[in-house]
Structure formats: C-alpha cells, structure tokens
Design a protein around this nucleic acid. Structure first.
Length: 168
DNA sequence: GCCAACGTTGGC
DNA sequence: GCCAACGTTGGC
C-alpha cells in the first residue's frame, strides 16, 4: 500500500509541533477532530506510516508549515473524548456501540530547517492547486499530492536523506 | 478584534 | 429537501 500524504493543522498556542516533540514517545492521539470530511479521510485513507505536513494556524506571522509527522496508529480508532461529558469535545449523540468520531496517533518526524509561511506557499506557482492555499479552506486534515508534499519539504530545507528516514 | 467563508442545525 | 440562522475557523 503506497504511502499517502497529508497536512494537519494545529494552533501552536494549543498544541504545537514543539509540544508533539515533548510527548511521551513523541507520539500523541490526535483527538478533537469534529468534522465529517476530516473524519472520513482518517477512517478511509489514513494508515500507519503515512506522512503529514504539520501546519500552524492562528499564529500571526508564524502561520505556516513547520515540519513532518507520521501516522503512528495502525489506523483510525474511536476518539475517547466524545464520551467524556467534561470534555470540550463531548458529543451526547455518539455511542460506544457506534462511535461518531475517530482519531489517529501522530508521531513527531522531522522539523523543517525553517518555517515555510502561508505567504510563501501561496506565492509558489507549483503549489497553486494545493488545498491549504485556497481561500476559506478550513479543513483541519487535508490530503496532499506527492508533488506538493515534496515541494513543501524542499522549501523547508529537508534533504532526500531526511525524507528517506521517514520512508518517503 | 474583525469578518469572510464555511459547516451544521433545525424549522418548515 | 430547502434554506436561514447560527457557531466556528482562521487569516489578517
């Protein structure tokens, strides 16, 4: 099964790339996704070993791509926060028999040598069709074409060796 | 803090 | 099934 490529958004004030690096095993369950399109991508297509561009949103001048993370769980599994009444992500309509929301685990991969800002992504002609540069695109988990993925990694200063270490 | 764009909800 | 109202996202 060929690897797939993704872009995942997170607000650095809430949970940034640095926070993932500090997690136990540098791995963390990606809970709180409450969008059907994003859930379907996780459920149907995202598998262990897939590689994601870690993107910081709501970050002022620091909005952009900061590094790579890999999918560390075999596949998507139920997001436990949907069953916790005290959680912000609680969903009273979801049941354990038929969970509505799923998550995967992400593992810290490679930091980019430098921030690739949203502005740069928008200015790169080869990334014209990339979802993240389109206006009003709010999807927090987006599929990324291989050519776009490679171009962003290059802009971030990653070498072929860096990518090979992640199995790309 | 503003506000455009978008997804979801719920009345009908 | 339509669509107005509402809440959220996220760039600026």
């Amino acid at each position: 099964m060929a690897k797939k490529f993704w872009l995942i958004k997170s607000e650095p004030d809430v949970f940034g790339f640095d926070d993932l690096e500090k997690c136990k095993g540098q791995t963390e369950p990606w809970d709180g996704i409450r969008n059907y399109q994003a859930r379907n991508f996780m459920r149907d297509e995202m598998r262990q070993g897939d590689v994601a561009i870690f993107y910081h949103s709501n970050a002022g001048a620091n909005v952009g791509a900061v590094g790579l993370a890999t999918v560390a769980s075999e596949k998507a599994y139920p997001d436990h926060t949907q069953f916790d009444p005290k959680s912000n992500y609680y969903d009273a309509k979801s049941t354990k028999e038929n969970p509505r929301w799923l998550m995967v685990d992400f593992k810290y991969g490679k930091p980019f040598k430098r921030l690739v800002t949203l502005k740069e992504l928008k200015e790169a002609p080869e990334l014209e069709d990339m979802l993240v540069v389109k206006r009003g695109q709010r999807l927090s988990i987006q599929p990324v074409e291989k050519a776009h993925f490679k171009a962003v990694c290059k802009m971030g200063g990653l070498s072929a060796k860096d990518l090979k270490e992640l199995g790309v």
